[in-house]
Amino acid sequence: MDNHEEVIRADRLDLTFQTNDGPVHALRDVNLTIDKGDFVSFIGPSGCGKTTFLRCIAALETPTGGMLSVNGMTADEARRARAYGYVFQAAGLYPWRTIAGNIRLPLEIMGFSRDEQVRRVNDVLQLVDLEGFGGKYPWQLSGGMQQRASIARALSFDADILLMDEPFGALDEIVRDHLNEQLLALWARTGKTIGFVTHSIPEAVYLSTRIVVMSPRPGRITDVIESPLPRERPLDIRESPEFIEIAHRVREGLRAGHGDV
């Protein structure tokens, strides 16, 4: 665990939304660094700012205070340099495009050649285990498969950072387990830096190298847990004492954050 290369750095980040009912402190004094190859989960109750923080990293929101750098640039510069792939909460596939057509969208925009587009689409379809489904339309696929296609789209142009906003939130637990396993395998193969928003404790503990526990009003970080689990994790690691201990600590952190409201 030497040779940390810092990819994302937040320094005393603040984001206040002005609403009709007065200012809402979505983020207050958020400090965090994420190193290359980390798998960092953000967990907390609704309103804790976990999605807002991810959106700040993606420059989909603009902080009102503090400093945020991504790949050594400002977040917006990084966005324009296509530093990250973003997986939205809903799969957000376009019904008039085939699965391959949806995955191709970033490649078309970025001006890849036809051959390169075909090659990359096939590569990522394989990566998310959807070979042979490129010609189907989204409605012909199950929810889990749609979400995998959406991940493939975010991977297609091979950005080093993958930002995922509760990508499996709407799926049932069995599908979710399966996708979590696949996501870890994908992470191991690609070595990407992943930011992952979730409200599931087991999911956060199973996936992450670091778990960031957040709490609402104002949205802030209450605990950052370094996972002692090995990078390679079979599903049954979730019954190990280490796993249960981390899950316990996350739950405590969430409870503490809730107590002072």
Partner: peptide
């Protein structure tokens, strides 16, 4: 439907028109 997706791909408002 496209605005956020395209923004996340580094596309400006004006450049999103052809798509």
């Amino acid at each position: 439907e496209y605005a956020e997706q395209l923004r996340s791909l580094g596309v400006s408002r004006l450049a999103s028109v052809p798509t």
